[in-house]
Amino acid sequence: MVLLRTGDSDVSAALVREAQGGSDEAFERLYRHHAPRIFALALRMTRTRGEAEDVTQEVFLRAWRSLGTFRRGSTFATWIHSIARNVVFDGSRTRKIPLVGIDEHLRDLARDLPDTRLDLERAVADLPDRARMAVLLAAAGHTYEEIAAIMETAIGTVKAQVHRARQLLKEALA
């Protein structure tokens, strides 16, 4: 059993190679390591646990189907978040996310995450969709370059989004 730590991209790469060879067990280890961050991102993008679960499921099913396209030189975390971005925004066109209002979303978060700060959650939830995703990726430790790759946009755009989002968060929390 390989234990993964955050940033342990070498181990992820080894597991990806095993999974590419058809190992369910290796893919499950990748899932166990990366799913909590994908689920957290999906939950804050869709605002509902049911939708977040569907998004997470779709992300990992697409990842399984597309493992052959994963190439060395990129990290699995960046790659899987790119898939998540596609699923979230593809879904937004057909499912019209978010399906619930911010107040209901915050009630659910307060129940599921009693330690979180609801004023901060509300401020983040109020951000425009793409800015919210960029901010959440940044907060999760991704670099500007990684966020730009995930969002398929220019680094300058990401920097501007993060800068503007910080201003909006400050105003919301003032």
Partner: peptide
């Protein structure tokens, strides 16, 4: 930093 950025599904 106060936001949990990993949530177990």
């Amino acid at each position: 930093a106060p936001l949990p950025l990993a949530i177990e599904p």
